[in-house]
Write a protein that binds this DNA or RNA. Structure first.
Lengths: 164, 164
DNA sequence: ATTGTCAAGTTCCAATTGGAACGATTTCTG
DNA sequence: CAGAAATCGTTCCAATTGGAACTTGACAAT
């Protein structure tokens, strides 16, 4: 087989392979929802595997750190409510983060059921790392858009998220 | 406790509860990615449980039907490539759909490894049902946007999805 | 023809998941 | 104040998941 033939066949294969992918993005029922989920899945697919492997921080653990970065001292229950994640997996994530020394867990003296969580310096260090990875992935994601378009996208998503 | 007090306390509780949720949406690092994933999760969370319970169609099965609705006769491998879903779970979904009589699976005479899939009339019927559910959910999702804004959102997501 | 490589689909299995029940604590109600 | 109801976090366990190995088939190179 000549090089040219090889190239042509590879291109054809690549096109056939991408064909359904692009057809779905272009014409599937639920186009908007499909595109939204497609992009969201692509985002996390690339990210969490690498993150866990390089830093040992799982998806649930990252969510916890992200929440603490916004409101240090919040509880697992509040995180569960805010992110719609099952509280038992958050419980596991909290324990792992605590074991790794990335967060500190205390008991609310007013209400001993509540256990406010706080990032330790080690937690802040690791969060800086994983945030950088995630931000890089976000930048890749938005690379096809201009700054104005990206801002608009974010605004529209925010509007939807408010009561959804 | 008076009714008014009850209402006020409930509102306060609801606000405290939503506080972190809204704070995350407003100020978390990775705002755009966070909002995107939040909306995508909210979309599927409500949908797939109800869908499976009411029609017996799982998420993976829905994906297969959705692909067949765009390209009848495509194979499990093509679906896996197009949707980035592991092929073993698609294999299971295909078997279940076939067992339920919703799809027909043949063997490509040219290449006996390939098994083109086709919706049966029963499959088309059930797909009409689940598509209606999903479209209703999509409509809920987009309810906060005008038609123009929704179209713009879809366009921006499509642009991102093209090479991401 | 034979051998090696690759692709489609399946199966195996270890790990993860999340719903449900639980124990401990607080809050509500009568 | 006593009992009921609700809340926070944990544990249990059945089911799902997806990576990796496997089977079968196609095809290129020799």
């Amino acid at each position: 087989m000549t090089d040219l033939e090889t190239v042509l066949l590879e291109r054809e294969a690549a096109e056939a392979e991408e064909d359904l992918r692009l057809a779905m993005l272009a014409r599937s029922p639920l186009v908007t929802a499909y595109r939204l989920n497609y992009v969201a899945n692509s985002f996390v697919a690339g990210l969490y595997g690498k993150m866990e492997e390089e830093t040992g921080i799982s998806r649930a653990q990252f969510v916890v750190l992200l929440c603490l970065s916004v409101r240090d001292g919040c509880t697992a229950q509040e995180i569960a409510d805010a992110t719609h994640r099952p509280k038992n997996s958050l419980s596991r994530a909290v324990r792992a983060l605590e074991a790794a020394g990335h967060i500190h867990r205390s008991t609310d003296v007013r209400d001993q059921r509540r256990q406010p969580l706080q990032m330790t310096p080690s937690g802040r260090r690791i969060f800086t790392q994983v945030r950088a990875q995630a931000e890089a992935r976000e930048a890749e994601m938005l690379a096809s858009l201009s700054a104005e378009e990206a801002a608009l996208l974010s605004k529209l998503l925010n509007r939807i998220a408010q009561d959804f």
